[in-house]
């Protein structure tokens, strides 16, 4: 470490910004890749079924796939409107 690096350390280097951005985007990308092929149609069908009973917005049904060890867990979250 020399004298110059002391002054340089005040602002974040563009390389470390790049790394942080990549870590976020890659994590997101990997989650999407792990979704099964039927994922989007499942989400659409579920929304349709819910709508037979209640009026909900497009983003009321949230489906996530989580991996824990050998298990794939399908997580379903339905937000019903206020009565």
């Amino acid at each position: 470490m020399g004298i110059l690096s002391f002054f340089r350390s005040s602002s974040k280097s563009s390389a470390s910004v790049a790394k942080e951005r990549l870590q976020i985007v890659v994590a997101h990308q990997r989650r999407e890749n792990q979704r099964p092929d039927y994922f989007l149609s499942l989400q659409r069908d579920l929304l349709e079924v819910v709508r037979r009973y209640v009026t909900v917005s497009d983003d009321a049904v949230k489906v996530e796939v989580d991996h824990q060890g050998d298990c794939d867990i399908l997580e379903l979250n339905i937000v019903l409107p206020d009565r």
Partner: peptide, 16 residues
Amino acid sequence: RVSKGEMLSLQDVQDI
């Protein structure tokens, strides 16, 4: 450029 902080290092790329 890596030591200037302008380029991802090979460690960075491997980490990702």
